[in-house]
Nucleic acid binder design. Structure first.
Length: 206
DNA sequence: CTGGGGATGGTCT
DNA sequence: GACCATCCCCAGA
């Protein structure tokens, strides 16, 4: 059993502009407790979605449905949704009435590697968590976590490690979103092997 | 009522 | 790099 489980970050952590939050989440620990055990990893890749002006966001044009409802609530809640056969995990941002979110696209696993591997049907190494659908499967994150406050177990975010270097570039998988596809709103830890896809980026800081 | 369309991933060439 | 499994939502009729 793991000891010294870090404490959740306070609500105040999420009270900042979404683009800044997307960068600050890099290096933080994402932790999920379940009856099967504990799983945790460092967040290494994120994407910002800033509705209503962002054509790639689910909340574009203030679109408000059962799915996007949680984006209109306070920052720091979990926004999970199903894409094809996978569940994707976002952190609600922007504050009440501002439907924004940060998609977590990849993590570097730290705790519960065996559990993750079994949830991922035997996959190992980077394949465990180097994609938004893969990491939710490995972590045991599902639609049951929709709307959960990330300040408390079983799903929460804690302080981790400060990245040496951060890069930014275009977001992934939004080819059909007009000029929104050009926005450099994807962030990752430079050189981290768990980043989902290697693509041109600009180094922001070291 | 119906159908088009995904913020993906796995597998194959 | 291309193909498609799979499924629920919701816009439009």
């Amino acid at each position: 059993m793991e000891q010294n489980i870090p404490q959740p970050l306070p609500g105040l952590f999420y009270e900042r502009p979404t683009l800044e939050l997307a960068g600050e989440l890099l290096g933080c620990l994402l932790i999920k407790q379940s009856s099967e055990g504990l799983a945790a990893g460092y967040i290494v890749e994120t994407e910002a979605y800033i509705g209503p002006g962002d054509k790639a966001a689910h909340s574009y044009n203030n679109r408000r449905t059962k799915r996007t409802e949680i984006m209109y609530h306070q920052s720091g809640l979990a926004y999970t949704y199903v894409m094809h056969t996978h569940c994707l995990f976002n952190v609600v941002s922007g504050g009440k009435g501002h439907p924004e979110a940060v998609l977590v696209r990849a993590i570097e696993p730290i705790i519960g590697l065996d559990l993750m591997s079994s949830r991922r049907l035997g996959h190992i190494g980077v394949n465990l968590t180097n994609g938004p659908g893969k990491l939710t499967k490995a972590m045991g994150i599902s639609m049951e976590d929709y709307g959960h406050d990330l300040q408390s177990p079983p799903l929460f975010i804690a302080r981790g490690r400060t990245p040496d270097s951060i890069s930014a570039g275009k977001r992934i998988g939004i080819e059909n979103s007009g000029e929104a596809r050009e926005y450099p709103w994807r962030f990752w830890i430079t050189g981290n092997p768990f980043v989902s896809r290697h693509q041109k980026g600009e180094e922001l800081r070291k």
